[in-house]
């Protein structure tokens, strides 16, 4: 049998085993890759298996952490390319998904810094950690809502706070000694007011 033919059979039979392989076994195949066609094919197939196993979870991780002007799929793609490059030298074999998230977190922070330094607002203090970058991303939405909230009277503010801490209208009614229907109506109107107020602020800053 020709070398190419035997290589093909080896790759095909290995692909059947990859599905049941652990992450560590798959990364080991990637670690020993060399330019020879059979080993490279095996490494690529192992990488595909890792992708199928973890890609949806990486995307879910990224989607809630990217700022609005960054595409989560782009960062996911870059994360996988970095993983391919770094598995042989930087992955120690334990908890692949956690390692992947760490690469993604570093890339997010880099992207965030890049975008901010090229934005018009150059005198801004750049966040140094992913936590602070996350707060930075949420800051605009928080500030608008907080401003609008301060325009509500004290009782309505209290009702909103209690409701958004998981208390029911009935519990709030008993706690504040206000009629059940009144609590319901005030919460509903407060929500309406806040939505209008925040949307108005968005229009003004657009």
């Amino acid at each position: 049998m020709s070398e190419i033919g035997s290589g093909y059979i080896r790759v095909m039979s290995n692909s059947l085993n990859l599905i049941s392989s652990t992450d560590e076994q798959l990364t080991n195949l990637i670690k020993v890759r060399d330019p020879s066609s059979v080993q490279k094919q095996e490494a690529e197939m192992a990488f595909n298996s890792l992708y199928d196993r973890h890609a949806p979870f990486l995307l879910a991780f990224l989607k809630v952490r990217v700022s609005p002007h960054i595409n989560a799929s782009d960062i996911a793609q870059e994360t996988w390319m970095r993983a391919w490059q770094k598995i042989p030298t930087h992955f120690d074999g334990s908890h692949f998904r956690g390692w992947l998230f760490q690469i993604a977190r570093n890339l997010l922070l880099d992207e965030f810094r890049k975008k901010k330094t090229t934005s018009l607002n150059e005198d801004i203090d750049l966040p140094e950690t992913q936590d602070s970058a996350q707060e930075f991303i949420q800051q605009e939405e928080k500030t608008k809502l907080r401003d609008c909230m301060s325009q509500l009277d004290e009782v309505r503010q209290k009702i909103v706070k209690l409701r958004l801490s998981g208390e029911s209208h009935r519990e709030i009614s008993e706690r504040l000694n206000v009629e059940y229907n009144t609590v319901q109506t005030r919460f509903h109107r407060a929500k309406q007011f806040l939505e209008d107020c925040v949307n108005q602020q968005e229009k003004e800053t657009a």
Partner: peptide, 14 residues
């Protein structure tokens, strides 16, 4: 996918 927004809103209130 809206977790970040939910967190921002709850953070503003609390």
């Amino acid at each position: 996918p809206n977790l970040s927004s939910i967190v921002a809103q709850l953070s503003a209130i609390h």
